[in-house]
Structure formats: C-alpha cells, structure tokens
C-alpha cells in the first residue's frame, strides 16, 4: 500500500505538519479550557480579597467548607439538592423521554413532526424558559393555578416556587420540559438503529410490547442510556441558570433550591446586601463540583460499559 510506505518513510523525520494541524485546537482548548480548570483548583488553596486571592492557606478553605457553620450546612444542602434534582430529572426527563421515544418509533404517521416538536424547547435559552415558568407559576397572576382551579384541583394549589417541598420538584419539571428532546432524540436514534429483523423476529414470536421493550430494546440501548445519564449528571451538577431565573441566587425558599451552581456563584461573587465575596472559597466549591462530576462520569461509564 502506498500509504503505509509513506508512513514508514516519514518515521525518519519529524512530521511538523501534524503539529501544525493540531496546534490551533490544542492551544485554544488547553489554554482556555483545561488550564483554567486546574488553575481554578489551585486557587482553592488561597484566600484574600479580589479576583486573585494571594494568601496561601493550604486546605483552609476546605476545612471551612466541611466543618464551619454555616458553610458546612450550605455545602451538604447543595449536594443533597443536586442529588434530588438529578434523580427527579432522570425520572421526569429521561424515563419519560424513553417512553416517548418508544411511542414515536412505532410505525405511526407524523413521527418526524413529533421528533422536531419535542425538541423545540431545547432550542430556547435556559433563562428564557426559567422566566416564562416563573411567571406561569406566580401565585397571584400565574396561569397554572387558574388552570388547576378550572379543572377542579384548586384545593391542591400551593405557592409552587415558595413552598420548600415543591420548589425543587417544580424546577426539575421545568428542566425536564426544557430538555426532554435530548433523551427523545438519543433514544429514537438508537431504536431506529436496531435492526428491523430483530424486532420482526420477536413480533413473529408473539412477544408483547412490554416484553419487546424489556428484552430487546432496553438491553440494546444500554450504551445510549449511559450517555444520556452522563449528560444529565454533568448538566445538573453544573446547573445554575434555571435556579437563577426561577427562584433566585440565594436558593429561595429556605435554601430548598440551592444547588452547587448557585452556591458557587454566591460564594465567588457575593450577592445582595453585604454578602462578602470569597474567590478562594468559590474555587474550593468548584473543585468539589469537579470531583463529584468526575466520579459520577467514571461511575456511569463503568456500569454502562461493563454490561454492553
């Protein structure tokens, strides 16, 4: 083969052009994505005013976060809320998205229409979505409560975003509304990829729909499920905008919607009246977020890779 000859010959001298091909992407990606990540982690060992904290304090910021009141409560609260949010979104968005993907991939008319339609919200900016739903859920003017009254569920009305029991659920539902297109697209693509013969054979054998889903579609979709889970996990643990636009940066009500993103923002930049900003402490929170995301991603990669 011609190619292998060239490859062999060129082993002798350094092929500079490869470097030139790679360098632009490598530099931009490294300097503005990878290095900042590690430099931000380095900042977590420093304290001091301003954007560049200068005083080295070792693990001081972490000790403060893990042991000192009220930082420790805020941190564990954010972790808990993030986990809750993740679980709820997995259910509302991904499980239901899976369900819709199965319906859409049936041989029905208009699948293409539904595929596009389900994806439309995803094209919107998170904060636009958040603002729209905060207006819809407003306890005085909001449409949602009137809709409930209209269909006779008026007794169940609660200030959805003001009640600590419902606020995070409401946010999870809005996240699911916004992003349901993603699992739907992933799953429909994967189901479409399953050989028709396999499904055909199963149908001829008289396998029921639920059996078909359980024994054929689900096992073949495991890698896709893994990807969707990872995307959801990473997205949720770095989420900020939805909380910002629906319940504000202080995790109102009663910190029930305070997640890592809002905690990081508040700590790093300071917020309303007299809240002190602390970049070093913020960097420590970002580092913890990174670790959690890393562990989560590795975990999902492991379980979904192993069983494929």
């Amino acid at each position: 083969m011609n190619l292998s000859k060239i490859e062999k010959n060129s082993f002798k001298k350094f092929r500079w052009y490869i470097l030139w091909f790679l360098l632009p992407a490598l530099i931009i990606y490294t300097v503005f994505m990878i290095l900042p990540l590690f430099n931000s982690m380095r900042m977590s060992f420093y304290t001091g005013p301003g954007i560049v904290p200068k005083e080295f304090i070792g693990f001081g910021n972490y000790i403060k976060l893990f042991t000192q009141f009220p930082f420790n409560i805020r941190l564990s609260n954010a972790l808990l809320n993030n986990i809750k949010l993740f679980i709820m979104v997995m259910f509302f968005q991904n499980l239901i998205g899976f369900f819709f993907a199965i319906l859409i991939t049936r041989k029905i008319k208009g699948t293409k229409f539904f595929r596009t339609l389900f994806f439309i919200p995803t094209a919107l900016s998170v904060i636009v979505v958040g603002f729209i739903f905060s207006l819809i859920l407003n306890p005085v003017w909001g449409i949602f409560d009137r809709l409930l009254e209209f269909i006779g569920f008026g007794a169940y009305i609660t200030p959805w975003l003001g009640n600590p029991k419902t606020a995070l659920v409401a946010i999870a539902l809005v996240v699911a509304w916004h992003n349901i297109g993603i699992p739907v697209v992933f799953f429909t693509a994967a189901i479409d990829g399953i050989s028709e013969d396999v499904l055909e054979a199963a149908r001829i054998d008289g396998v029921s729909l639920s059996g078909e889903v359980r024994h054929i579609i689900f096992p073949l979709l495991k890698p896709t499920i893994g990807i969707v889970s990872i995307l959801t996990f990473v997205g949720n643990f770095s989420e900020f905008e939805i909380v910002y636009s629906m319940t504000g940066i202080s995790g109102s009500p009663e910190f029930a919607t305070d997640i890592f993103g809002s905690l990081f923002y508040r700590t790093t930049f300071g917020t309303t009246m007299n809240v002190v900003s602390d970049v070093g402490l913020g960097a420590a929170i970002a580092t913890i977020m990174f670790m959690i995301i890393l562990i989560g991603v590795l975990f999902f990669l492991r379980i979904f890779k192993r069983e494929v």
Binding site: L137, P139, V140, P159
Partner: peptide, 11 residues
C-alpha cells in the same frame, strides 16, 4: 395573602 410563600417583591 394566600400563597405568600411564593410571592416575590415584584408581585
């Protein structure tokens, strides 16, 4: 008012 837990300053 009813639902005051969900009422923000603008409302």
């Amino acid at each position: 008012p009813k639902g005051y837990e969900g009422i923000d300053y603008v409302t």
